[in-house]
Amino acid sequence: MIKKLMLLLMFGFIFLYALTATAPLADSFPETSIGETVIHRGYDETASKNLVAAILLDYRLFDSIFEAGILLISAAGVLYMSRSSGFSKPFPRAKEAAVPKDSDSILAVSRILYPFMLLFGFYIIVFGDLSPGGGFQGGVILATARLISVYIPEKASENTDPLNRLEKILFLCLLSLGLISLFTRGAPFTNFFSGSVDPEFRRLFLVLLNLLIGLKVSSGLTIIFIRFIKEGK
């Protein structure tokens, strides 16, 4: 009890300190910031109308590639852990609760929703540089669509190896796509078209990147989902 009280007291002090420290931040913006410069020059430099995508896919592409890399490692780690050999299992299951059979309405709704979710996911990915969205968001939608297809018996496949390979290959493609500009423009991790090309052409790079990221993220998340479903069985 005293321990918790002490904790709360410390929190009180840290809270007050943080409040006084963040209060001056509320009104004064710095004179120049990365974000402001991006708002002014973003479209001319990256040909992306969505400026968040401009940062993700051009200015800080190196970060985005490693962000995709985190998911890759996580999928590989989940896959490694859930392989049946290795761990001993003295306590296989909490309680033998009766697993209810999936109802027919879920099946029917999943069947109707599945193609639309795929379409929506691809829409979000391909139009990521024009409207809110992008590879990561669209990839998650695609993975959710794959998750819903678990309810559809004839679609359900539990083999994650091809997906796993696909994910790693896509990551390599992503890396090499980012490096092409080193040879065409002399600067790594940016658009491979130079700034003088028509923006409609330069968009190609963004769409390609979004597609690669979207597919990679969706396959990574799908691996994780399928492995978790398998653990539950």
Partner: peptide, 12 residues
Amino acid sequence: LVLGAFGDKLNI
């Protein structure tokens, strides 16, 4: 080493 074409203000 600037990773991008737009200088160290914007790039990593």
